[in-house]
């Protein structure tokens, strides 16, 4: 928690310029202190439940039912990795974990690839009806996912996609695209026109412009989109619950199946939930390095 607060500290020049008065310096420091305090509180709010989940996943079932996770501070010896060992050994859970991968990775890759291609065309290639098409595609954002469940389920049934991983992926791709195109098109359209035209004058084809100018410049937007899309698909329960069968169920569905009316089953749930959190966290950490500011710096005046 301290670490989080450290990272976002706003640099206030400590020595300051001589013209700054005592009052403004005091308020500056005070403001800085408040900011850190505020961020620390936010961090605590977010981290305490996660921490609780982690501890719960590390205690056995009896301990979890007998006392709350916070008692761990007085009895650290209770901690064990047995829950994880059991979970990984459980073939069904392991399979659902893999299923999540099989769903999330293609659903993310397809959306990012298709959306970036579409966004390039919608922002930089002139063709009749471009504006209308853009409005229609982005307008699909208002379509709630729930209204499509039953019609699409019927459609999938007719095509033999119901209960398959392909079906789940296709649904995610279809419903991920409007937002993805909205996000990327806005970013692409913000790339200076001269940059695209310079590439055109340098002899580049549209494909080369896309690959060698637009994609590198749009890294931050593509990284954000990747993270968003991956998280949504990874954490999705509704779509998988409707379209996946027992063999293609992802971890979210598998964990839900562990819920019992009587008894908490907390050792399985906490462990599974924590395990399923690690991957998105890793994805986030990998892609966040692309969130560098000023990618376009130096390109134009």
């Amino acid at each position: 928690m301290t670490l989080v607060a450290e990272e976002v500290r706003i640099e206030v020049p400590v020595s300051g310029s001589p013209r700054r008065g005592v009052l403004s310096r005091v308020f500056g420091r005070l403001g800085n202190g408040f900011m850190q305090l505020f961020l620390a509180v936010v961090a605590v709010f977010w981290l305490v439940p996660v921490f609780g989940l982690l501890i719960a996943s590390l205690r056995d079932e009896q301990a979890n039912t007998a006392s709350g996770w916070w008692t761990i501070f007085t009895k650290p010896a209770e901690l064990t990795l047995r829950n994880y060992a059991e979970l990984v050994a459980n073939q069904a859970v392991w399979q659902s974990f893999l299923n999540t991968f099989y769903i999330a990775v293609p659903a993310t890759v397809l959306v990012v690839v298709m959306a970036s291609l579409a966004s390039y065309a919608l922002s930089w290639i002139e063709f009749p009806g471009r504006e209308t098409l853009t409005v229609v595609v982005v307008g699909l954002l208002v379509m709630p996912i729930q209204v499509a469940l039953i019609p699409v389920a019927k459609l999938f049934g007719a095509f033999g996609l119901f209960g398959t991983i392909t079906g789940v992926v296709l649904f995610h791709v279809a419903f991920g695209l409007p937002f993805a195109i909205f996000l990327l098109r806005n970013f692409f359209a913000g790339i200076p026109r001269d940059l695209i035209e310079a590439a055109r004058m340098d002899g580049a084809t549209e494909w080369v412009i896309f690959k060698r100018v637009v994609l590198p410049v749009a890294k931050p937007a593509i990284a954000s989109l990747t993270i968003f899309q991956f998280l949504w698909v990874w954490n999705d329960l509704l779509v998988a619950l409707v379209f996946a069968d027992q063999d293609s169920a992802p971890i979210t569905v598998a964990l839900r199946a562990q819920l019992r009316q009587f008894g908490t089953n907390i050792d399985v749930l906490a462990t599974g939930a924590f395990l399923s959190m690690i991957v998105p966290l890793a994805v986030f950490l990998v892609f966040q390095k692309y969130f560098v500011q000023g990618v376009l710096a130096g390109s134009t005046k």
Partner: peptide, 29 residues
């Protein structure tokens, strides 16, 4: 099309590729 005209252009605001070094900018064409 513009790319096949054998015509080059220098833009008012330079329009250099920000992610490439000077050498790669010059080497792009």
């Amino acid at each position: 099309p513009a790319r096949s005209r054998g015509v080059s252009m220098v833009f008012q605001d330079f329009a250099l590729y920000p992610h490439l070094s000077v050498a790669d900018n010059i080497g792009f064409p």
